[in-house]
Design a protein around this nucleic acid. Structure first.
Lengths: 185, 185
DNA sequence: CCGTTTCCACCTAGGTGCGAAGGT
DNA sequence: ACCTTCGCACCTAGGTGGAAACGG
């Protein structure tokens, strides 16, 4: 997933322990297609398919102090349309192409061992940022998104037009794209 | 560290939880030098220098069933002579060059959260395999060791003489060198 | 002098979008 | 038609030993 989700968290108990994870849910009940330069709805969504749709941050479990120390990035969260069949050990989030999704951030207080406290629902908080919605694709439809990724994803450096000139620039830029950048991708 | 340490563990409680880690201690109190094709002692060892000398297996903590399921490899254990000064967060084992070392395997029963049970020393077992002793170096002294690593470490493939011919062979070999291979490196 | 550090070519491993080929 | 998959060139990131430079 690029640009990746990144959050700042405050007001946790520095000494308590938390799991932090993201899951991705359908944002509406429609197929989408890109037609005439716009995304348009097109029929009903397929039934909820099986497959993992949550990703625990690799630092989990950890203390409130740890989570608040610095920005929490989900740079290694990976998306796929492959249900995996076998060895999918919860490492990738499985989505259906051409459906719109809404990521959600969850912060769950846990015992020191990382298992969830029972009957402590007030100790779980979830956050939804509508600006992080996106449409999953297997091939890019919107050229602006393609260019955004080529410009900012280091692994796509080979596709930049003015390779050297642009790169020096980017290194000096703050490269923390607002979550809005993910919209429509 | 290559060849890397690898262990099979049996007779754990499948439902209990354990940390598994390796540490590396001085095997004797001498400097060593390579002279006339042999390692010879040479004066006294320096005082025990500071620096991390243990490496927790990345699967830790985990169940007895997990540890017994398959061979436990320490393929990502890294050695250095750099005390790091700052950001050394326990990820590398710090050794002094030209000293002889003895790796040790430790299996510690823990609570589910990975913290050690207090007053449960009988729940810790340590194993020492003398055949895994080695002498740390910054430059290879023994040509046999150099060739062993070139032949078997995939990252050193570029130094193999008969590149293609040899590689097909190695792929078909069992590549689990006995710990003895580490001796004298 | 001899051991250490630095730089280098060469590899493994894996993340990019592109374009051709494949499916429905 | 339109979407998906696959192979590809091109990158990032990092693990090799060799050779030269460095240092006490």
């Amino acid at each position: 997933m690029f640009p990746f989700l990144s959050f700042n968290i405050t007001a946790l108990d520095p000494t308590a322990h938390y799991n932090v994870y993201v899951d991705v849910v359908l944002a509406d009940q429609h197929h989408w297609r890109y037609q005439g330069g716009k995304w348009v709805q097109c029929g009903k969504a397929e039934c909820n398919m099986p497959g993992n749709r949550s990703y625990m941050h690799p630092d989990s479990p950890n203390s409130g102090a740890h989570w608040m120390r610095q920005e929490i990035s989900f740079g290694k969260l990976k998306l796929t349309n492959n249900k995996g069949g076998s060895n999918n050990t919860g490492q990738m989030i499985v989505l259906q192409s051409l459906h719109k999704y809404q990521p959600q951030l969850h912060i769950v207080e846990v015992k020191e061992d990382g298992t969830q406290e029972p009957h402590m629902t007030s100790r779980t908080q979830s956050f939804i940022f509508p600006e992080t919605q996106f449409i999953a694709v297997t091939a890019y439809q919107n050229a602006d998104i393609t260019q955004l990724k080529i410009d900012h994803n280091p692994f796509a450096k080979g596709f930049r037009d003015n390779f050297d000139a642009v790169y020096g620039q980017i290194e000096n830029d703050r490269l923390s794209p607002s979550p809005t950048d993910a919209t429509g991708c």
